[in-house]
Design a protein around this nucleic acid. Structure first.
Lengths: 219, 219, 219, 219
DNA sequence: GATGAATGAGGATTCATTCAT
DNA sequence: CATGAATGAATCCTCATTCAT
């Protein structure tokens, strides 16, 4: 530890006070995050979160009014991240586009890890459930809008219900991470994307879009 | 029991003792079922279950070693029902077939209602999670087998990953009830079936199968 | 089971179930009573009350929703007892009458012992304070009525404010027990009664009433 | 203090350090005083007292070893003030004298306001209780002495127990503020004084003393 | 001295489970 | 077998007090 020579003397390295408080808060948030994912929300006590963060029980309550608030602060920043992305069709190879979006989304979810706690919470916490339902409706609307545009350009199947397609897409996108986990395999985003595209586009459209993209990149 | 001779006179024989016990057990199971669905597993106390079943708290523990066991006995019978059915492709209009299967499956799930408690439980109870994963793998295998057969008959897309398709189908099938709930609409099973079929079959196959079925019923 | 001879063998003496529950409740009430008086309300924990009553903590909560409820049930029966009695003037030696009433009242208070907790509680518990204020107003009104009647019969001082007299009487009556405690002396009820009578009656009235009573008992 | 030369330049000398400390102490005392009266002793936290005094929590403990000590320092100066005054009989209209003393006493109590916290504290804090009992005995002795002198001058009732009278007087004097509060009325000190005088002096003495005073002021 | 973040013991309450009747 | 009272471990949260800065 060469750069730490100063430590040999005996001073207090300690950060500015504000920063230290933020560190502690962060430690608690991370401890909570980890434990919620590891053991579930209910199974995690405030005492444990504090201990795991290396602070006393009471300290937990300096930073959060209760366990739920810690959870909320975890979710708040992340609720949008939890939602699947809204692709913009018709300008590129839809399979690659989707695969790419799925992978990004998946990575985000993995970083958060909270999708694992949500199922436990939504049934108990109607306020949270409402927030989620709203976010979901929102993203649903956006995706659907994109599909309708695509339909107007005659890109999609003519006879499928786009609402149902939207729902299926979201469902699949949200669950890709779980699939990966279970199957152990990684990186079949492209296979998933292909399957989703079959729900949306007739094969000839997919072909056409792929061809166009290939031509573009030929330049 | 000499002092009980009087029983011969004034009492209804009621049910054979065995049967009465089974009635109580059943009452408990149903009470637990209802309350778990209504309030969630954790939020339901053994006392409530017993009270709601019209028996004493202690009686609960005569029939079940603990709350978890009651849950297990609820799930045991039902775990297979929770799984989507495995259609047999190639012999009929796949959309109608799927729509029909989805509806049946949905109805079964509705009767059970337990799909609502599962998310709460799976993260906490790894044993249960394992059982579920196994069941899911099982049904996955069956569906996949069916799809592979269909692929051999050149019914399916040639270039999609059937494993991924299987997974998507299960996912959608499992979530149809939730969709209905949220959207409020009923009975768009057929739309869902149509979308699923797009994932599996090229349009010409669907056409062909539909035509064949129409001809069959012409006879 | 003719006359409980069987009890000689190895029986459970135990009371009828109802009665036992009542015993337990009573034990808790008494334990709470004792501890409240001994250590004050706030200083007494539910756990202590339970332990002191020989039951588990949880048992406390079977019988009372919380500590306050136990207190309330202590007070409810007793709030009337806490109030000084309303004498009926003009028909007997007022000093003896008062002395007697004071002694009775004092004895009742001693049995309850709760007057010691009240000062701690009234400032914190406005509901309780209201109940008490009402009870006090009630008894004040009764005593005052008695004094007004006496005044109409020209028994009392003509120039004192009977409301003030009433208040003073109540105050003294309520505090006699404390006085006894502190001074260590017992049984100066009669002295206190004499002093109170000076507040109410002119000396000639007292003389007259004493004389009348003496004559009565002469018969 | 060599490194503090800079202080000579840019800082207000503000107050001498000693004095500043005393200001802080005073702020704490006043904050405690106000909050104890407002919310009661137990219901007031050290943190609140500090915040309300505009200092940090820790500062509280520089000036007081604990919450109790702050209370004590509040009471110490005031315990004598809490006690009713000892009138000097025989030289003036006793009713006016008493009324005046009562009013003064009442005002002092109002300024202190602590009489409201005492009931909460005395049961918990036997040391405090002892101090109070001592103070009370002290004032009791003084008042009693005055009454005995008056008795020797044949001013008082001959047949009442002066100890009891003393006690009654103190009791009433201590509770006048509460009476005022409850009744809403103000300034019936004179009525209370009249009633007290009835306990002490026969009517003819009161008349005589009043007359004498009237003559005095005739000059 | 002053600060206020940190501590952790302690009190209220709940509920799965046992057990005497 | 049934009962439901009893148990007590476990959780949440508060607040007097300490201590590093």
């Amino acid at each position: 530890m060469p750069d730490r020579e100063d430590q040999l003397v005996g001073e207090f390295p300690s950060l500015p006070i504000q920063e230290r408080a933020q560190l502690k808060r962060k430690a608690l948030v991370e401890s909570g995050h980890a434990l919620f994912i590891l053991k579930g929300y209910d199974q995690t006590t405030a005492k444990e979160i504090a201990a795991n963060a290396g602070v006393a029980t009471g300290t937990f309550y300096r930073y959060f009014s209760d366990k739920r608030q810690l959870l909320m602060s975890l979710l708040e920043d992340q609720i949008d991240e939890l939602m699947p992305p809204e692709p913009n069709w018709g300008t590129s190879n839809p399979e690659s586009l989707l695969a790419c979006l799925l992978e990004m989304h998946d990575k985000r979810l993995n970083e958060l890890g909270l999708s694992r706690v949500l199922p436990e919470l939504l049934p108990k916490d109607s306020e949270l459930a409402d927030v989620f339902a709203a976010a979901r409706r929102n993203i649903h609307a956006k995706i659907l809008k994109g599909l309708i545009k695509a339909q107007e350009k005659e890109l999609t199947w003519k006879d499928v219900d786009l609402d149902t397609v939207t729902w299926s897409m979201m469902l699949i996108a949200e669950n890709v991470p779980k699939k990966m986990e279970q199957s152990g395999k990684k990186a079949d985003y492209h296979e998933v994307a292909k399957v989703i595209c079959r729900m949306v586009f007739p094969p000839e459209v997919i072909e056409k879009l792929k061809r166009e993209e290939a031509e573009k990149s030929d330049f």
